[in-house]
Structures are given as structure tokens and as C-alpha cells.
Amino acid sequence: MPQRILIVEDDSNILILLNFLMTNSGYETRACSDGPGALKAAAEFLPHLVLLDIMLPGLNGYDVCRALRAAPAHAGTRIVILSAKGRDHEIAMAQASGADAYVTKPFSTRDVMSTVQRLLASP
């Protein structure tokens, strides 16, 4: 049973590349490009892990993260935040919102893959 990964990213190119990376590694993926859509997709898709961009139209990524964390259905879901901002207080915010990992853009594909695999491996 392949693990499910939800990709939330508004830049279409990055969406394509993340999708490629995940499917190439055998995960089942679903993609969306805005906050409300992300929450809806998460409710339906019940992913094991969410790749979450911060700069989203509508709801911002931190709010989505907090909303996901608040829902008991996603208690076990891992959340990885992708952001072009890397300042300390943003990392702190990410942690405060309940994310499990934080990846700054531009990222190395190997880094992303290893983070995803690590998170999905642990119970």
C-alpha cells in the first residue's frame, strides 16, 4: 500500500517537480495550489505526509498547518513546510504551527527525499 503524499504549492513548475520526485519514489500523490483546496483535499485524501508551501493564495501556509494539526483525523500526518524564507523567526513559527520539518528553497532534491523518507519511516 503506497503511502499518500499531498503536495500544496502554488508555483506550477515546483509542483511538477515535486510531483515527479514523489511518484518516482513510489508514493501516491495529490496536488493542489491553494489553502482552502488543501484542507479539502486533505480531508478526502487522508495523506500520510503533506508538503506545504507557505506563500499560498488565500490562506497562508502556517494557518493551513495549524488547521491540519487541529483536526484529529490528521493527528498522525507528517507536515513538511517548504519556504523561500529562511529567517529564524519563520522557522520558529513553523515549529509553533506544528510542522515536523522545514525545508528552504531552493532545496536539494536529495534533501527533500531523505526528509520525506525519514518522516514516513518512523511511526
Binding site: D11, F20, A84, K85, P106, S108, T109
Partner: peptide
């Protein structure tokens, strides 16, 4: 500045990542 940084990093992300993909696959 923060916005500019973001706008610059986004295309950079694509460029780097796709380059790596091409290299690795």
C-alpha cells in the same frame, strides 16, 4: 526585501531541482 527574496528563490528552486532530477534520472 523578503518578498524579493522569495520571488528570486522560487525560479531558483525550479532550476536547481530540475537540474538534479535530470542528473539523477
Amino acid at each position: 526585501i523578503s518578498t524579493v527574496t522569495h520571488e528570486l528563490r522560487t525560479p531558483l528552486t525550479s532550476i536547481r531541482a530540475f537540474s538534479e532530477i535530470l542528473l539523477d534520472n
